[in-house]
Simulated scan of single mutants.
Amino acid sequence: MKTIYLVRHCQAEGQEPDAPLTAVGIEQAQQLAAFLANKQIEGIISSPFERAYRTISPLADAAALPIKLDERLTERVLLGQNHPDWREMLRQTYEDMDLCYEGGESSRTATNRAVQVVTEVLNSSWKNAVIVSHGNLISLLLKHLDQAVGFEEWEALSNPDVYELSFTDAASSFKRIWMP
């Protein structure tokens, strides 16, 4: 069996790639490191966005593990500009995985890049790994594993959040293990 701990970043000061963690987010990252300390983590892959890799840095430091930054784990861009109805637009992308707004990325395209990372982890020698990313991409990855996941599950995600994904030769399953 292989286990991937899918982690949503801690509280951050914004959505920009270089947005740092807030003071609360820095404390959350320490709590997250303690929470994952006994999981026998062998590998860590993170979005290159600062809020993501800073979320997992305390665990990486404590476990003396490098953090592999992977562009495929960046936040999914819904559309190329701010829009007042972005939440409704996002909801529609869970129903139509190929819906793509101007300047954005479809749910299917975003899901495929996240699945590539998971597949590489499953094909690695690691038995237990951490993948750190962003809310929308995480919810799309969960939807890939269970089609019932949608907009409501995205809304229910916390900062941070942790899902344990378990893979055997016969099946995969996931459960939320972080309780905010």
Rank of each mutant, 00 (worst) to 15 (best):
E152M: 03
L141E: 10
L59N: 03
E105W: 04
E102Y: 00
G135H: 08
R51F: 06
G25V: 01
A60I: 10
S124K: 12
F174Y: 12
C100K: 12
Y53S: 03
I56N: 05
K143W: 01
A33T: 10
S158H: 08
E27D: 07
V117F: 08
V7I: 10
Y101N: 12
L157A: 11
L69N: 00
I26E: 15
E88G: 15
R108D: 05
P20H: 06
V117S: 04
I131N: 00
L6W: 09
L21M: 02
S133A: 11
I67A: 05
D18I: 13
M179E: 08
D98V: 13
Q30I: 11
D85R: 12
F174S: 04
G103Y: 01
F174P: 03
P160G: 02
R87G: 09
W154C: 14
S133M: 05
R91Q: 15
T3Y: 08
L137N: 10
D85F: 13
E120A: 08
Y163N: 01
A64L: 14
D96V: 04
D146V: 10
E71A: 13
A156G: 14
R176W: 01
L142D: 05
F167P: 02
R54Y: 09
E164Y: 04
D85G: 13
L165T: 07
S46E: 08
N82E: 11
S57T: 06
D98Q: 09
D161F: 05
V24S: 06
L140Y: 07
H9M: 06
C10H: 04
Q92H: 13
C10V: 02
L165E: 13
W178C: 08
M1H: 13
E50F: 15
A170K: 15
E155D: 00
S172T: 14
R108C: 08
A63T: 10
G14K: 08
I67S: 00
I26V: 12
A170I: 09
R113W: 04
T3R: 09
L137M: 08
